[in-house]
């Protein structure tokens, strides 16, 4: 019996955001936008979904006079991401 893949993470853009956040303390919205190549609107919607699930936190502030939105992965997000990667590995090893 294979573990079920988390549908929230099994989406290209959300998975890319989580993968980036897995390797850093926190990342700016502009950085995530550049890295994923997504539009601001689309990225914003996906970030809201990840936030609602408790996988990431979003903090709004300022860097100098410029508004800044910072995203950070939560412990729940780290756990879900870890489980997702583990499930993918199981799928792949079973298919070999």
């Amino acid at each position: 019996m294979f573990p079920k893949l988390d549908p929230l993470l099994h989406s290209e853009l959300r998975l890319a955001v989580m993968s980036i956040l897995a390797g850093v303390d926190e990342a700016d919205f502009t950085y995530l936008k550049k890295q994923t190549g997504a539009t601001a609107g689309n990225l914003s919607v996906q970030i809201d979904k990840l936030t609602a699930a408790g996988y990431i936190t979003v903090e709004k502030g300022f860097k100098g006079k410029m508004p800044r939105t910072t995203c950070r992965m939560t412990p729940a997000g780290q756990e879900a991401f870890g489980k997702y990667v583990e499930a993918l590995r199981e799928y792949l090893s079973a298919s070999k």
């Binding site: 099994h10 290209e12 998975l15 890319a16 993968s19 980036i20 897995a22 390797g23 850093v24 990342a27 890295q35 994923t36 990667v85 993918l88 590995r89 792949l92």
Partner: peptide, 13 residues
């Protein structure tokens, strides 16, 4: 999916 994770992580690094 695994490829996307690996690419995103490495590109950011």
């Amino acid at each position: 999916s695994l490829q996307l994770i690996s690419e995103s992580f490495n590109k950011s690094r």
